[in-house]
C-alpha cells in the first residue's frame, strides 16, 4: 500500500471518528437516561471540586457559588430529566416590586447580547435567575456541554451582578446601567 493511499484512509478514519463523537441515547429507558446524566453531572462536579448535594425527587444537584461582585452567593441547581439537563443559578436577591419593570428592561437588554445563558425573573415575586439548558433527546451531552452551561450561567451573573443589584434593589435606570457594564471580550 502506498503512502498516498494510506494517508487519505487515516484522514477519513479521523473524520469519521470526529463526526461520531455523540453517544446516542438509543433505546435507553427513562431510568437509564437519568442514571447516565446523573453519573455525568456527579463526575463533573466532583472533578471540578464542587461540594454538592443530590436529591432524587426531582433529580437535582445543588451547590453554592460565591459571587465576584455585589451579588450575594448563588445557589446553583442542575435539574435532570430523561430529556433535559437544566443549570440554574439563583442569587439570593429579589427585585423590589416597584423595580420589576425596570429589571425586565435590564434583562431584555442583557439577553439580547447573550447567546449561551439567559436571565429570567418571576414578575410576581421578583426572583431572578440565570439559566441554560441542554436537550437530550437522541444523544447524551458530554462534560464540555455541561461545563459551558455551568460556566456561562455563572459568567452572566458575574458580568451583570452589579447592574442587577443597582436596578433590582436601588431602582436605577436600566439603560444607563447596562451601557456602563464592561463586557467580556
Amino acid at each position: 500500500m502506498t503512502l498516498r493511499r494510506l494517508l487519505p484512509l487515516c484522514l477519513a478514519l479521523v473524520m469519521l471518528c470526529g463526526a461520531a463523537l455523540a453517544q446516542p441515547v438509543g433505546n435507553d429507558t427513562e431510568e437509564a437516561r437519568i442514571a447516565h446524566l446523573t453519573a455525568l453531572v456527579d463526575h463533573y462536579l466532583t472533578t471540578q471540586g464542587y461540594r454538592f448535594s443530590y436529591r432524587e425527587n426531582p433529580h437535582s444537584f445543588t451547590f453554592e457559588v460565591p459571587a465576584d461582585n455585589t451579588l450575594p452567593p448563588s445557589s446553583v441547581t442542575i435539574n435532570l430529566s430523561a430529556d433535559l439537563l437544566m443549570v440554574s443559578a439563583f442569587p439570593s436577591i429579589f427585585a423590589a416590586e416597584e423595580n420589576r419593570v425596570k429589571m425586565a428592561k435590564l434583562i431584555t437588554l442583557i439577553n439580547w447580547d447573550s447567546s449561551w445563558a439567559h436571565l429570567y425573573m418571576d414578575m410576581d415575586t421578583g426572583q431572578i435567575i440565570s439559566s441554560a439548558d441542554i436537550l437530550t433527546l437522541s444523544v447524551y451531552p458530554g462534560e464540555e456541554e455541561l461545563h459551558i452551561c455551568v460556566g456561562m450561567v455563572g459568567l452572566l451573573l458575574e458580568t451583570y451582578g452589579n447592574a442587577i443589584v443597582r436596578v433590582a434593589l436601588l431602582g436605577e435606570d436600566p439603560q444607563a446601567i447596562f451601557d456602563a457594564v464592561p463586557r467580556p471580550e
Binding site: 419593570v101 425586565a104 428592561k105 434583562i107 431584555t108 439577553n111 429570567y120 418571576d122 414578575m123
Partner: peptide, 24 residues
C-alpha cells in the same frame, strides 16, 4: 418597548429551550 420587555419576561419565566428577545 418597556411593556414588551415586561411581557417577554413574564413569558420567558415559564419556558425552557427557547426565549423571546427584543432589540431595544
Amino acid at each position: 418597548r418597556d411593556s414588551m420587555a415586561e411581557l417577554q419576561t413574564r413569558i420567558n419565566w415559564d419556558h425552557s429551550f427557547a426565549q423571546l428577545q427584543m432589540d431595544y
